[in-house]
Design a protein around this nucleic acid. Structure first.
Lengths: 230, 230
DNA sequence: GGCCTTATGTACTGCTTGGTTAATAAGATT
DNA sequence: AATCTTATTAACCAAGCAGTACATAAGGCC
């Protein structure tokens, strides 16, 4: 069990006796769970250390202090959910379909990354105090707006969308609906029951979020009239 | 400074040497600030005690332990924002106006109670674990749904609203937009700038939230056509 | 005015927890 | 192989903090 594979030296081998980057990642992964679960002050460094394959000392070695670790975890969280919008190939769809797809994607994407959502919630509790480094984060979110901007413009040009809809505001609205769905599911379902949070309910919500957005931007005469009560 | 006003014994005087209820309220008020600001684990009992006119001992005397206090604060928060909807006199308005009013009220109401919002955020971080006592809380939120239900029905009967809109879902949507506006203002403005959170921006958002909801429920032929870009 | 219950002040405690000290092992460098 | 830098271990510490023990004062009640 010493070091049977002393070969492969040129490429930094995965299973090196020393593996700083691996240790870093290990810590970050565990820390993300702990922070997103318990918040900044609720998280326990000892707990993180225990669930890591390293020791507490290493956390301080790589991240300085608790806040430093938290900050990196936050950045990590934003990084983990970046992109996506770019892979949607919205340009290949007509504006209406593109917008619907964007909505549904956003809704779903949020749903699939609850720990990211929780990190953002936590950061908001702290008034966004740890986001000053936002240069990175800021850059990651521009594409979302730009994608939306493109779709809106195309829709307006082809006459199916009304004008006077601000892309930033629309992004805000889509985000609100998608974010709230994850962030407040606990309290909401406690109060009103869990119907909306079953698989069925979520599918309905997703559809209706998209519908709401579409009805918001479509010119009234382009809203498809369907059987009124379905 | 002994007790100069030994009179007025029949009515529980405000400035009684002993004032249990006052002490309770004092603690709750301060605790609400501390908890909503710092979360459950971030809040410090000593800090609460210090900012109270009583001592730490009293906190434990009345509330048992930290969680007990938190729980009461949470209930208090829900209680503080209850009602409101009932005072709106929606029945006096046509459905369209009523719905718009309800939206704008909700948006504004959330905005005016940031500490309530924060308590709900915090509780969601804790997966709503402290809301089991929700009988009270549950009751406080029914009226909101009922008000909405009433308006929707009237609108459908008079033919201006389409059918097939679920009141609970619509409430969810309005809540999402109103809640997110407060809960995520820190991170959102960090990323996209603060334009949406100036007085002007908020007025615009409020209007557009209402507009979005209205366009969602109005039958297309009843959507007022206005100058397209305003 | 004794007695019982409710309310309150002071001081203390023990565990939790973020952070550190000191020593050392593994690679890199030459 | 000597040296220097980076990575890692294990034990330790002091402050912070939730919760308590103990004593006692007010007020109600008869």
């Amino acid at each position: 069990m010493k070091e049977e594979n002393a070969t492969a030296k040129e490429r930094p081998a995965k299973v090196a006796k020393r593996d700083p980057e691996g240790v870093r990642r290990d810590i970050l992964t565990v820390a993300m769970e702990e922070f997103s679960q318990n918040g900044l002050s609720g998280a326990r460094i000892d707990e993180i250390a225990a669930r890591t394959r390293t020791s507490k000392r290493m956390i301080y070695y790589y991240f300085g202090d608790k806040e430093g670790l938290y900050q990196r975890v936050l950045e990590e969280a934003y990084g983990k959910v970046r992109g996506g919008e770019s892979d949607l190939e919205l340009d290949g769809l007509d504006p209406q379909a593109a917008l619907e797809r964007l909505c549904r994607f956003t809704f779903d994407h949020h749903r699939r990354h609850p720990d990211f959502i929780r990190m953002v919630m936590i950061e908001n509790i702290h008034h966004g105090r740890h986001m000053q480094v936002s240069q990175t984060i800021r850059g990651l979110n521009r594409p979302a707006i730009e994608a939306l901007e493109g779709v809106l413009k195309r829709g307006q040009e082809s006459g199916v969308f009304r004008t006077g809809v601000d892309p930033l505001e629309l992004h805000w609205q889509i985000s609100a609906l998608s974010f709230f769905n994850v962030s407040n599911s606990a309290t909401f379902s406690h109060i009103f029951g869990g119907e909306l949070f079953t698989d069925d309910g979520q599918e309905r919500l997703s559809a209706h979020v998209a519908e709401m957005v579409l009805r918001y931007v479509l010119r009234p005469d382009h809203i498809p009239t369907r059987v009124q009560d379905d």
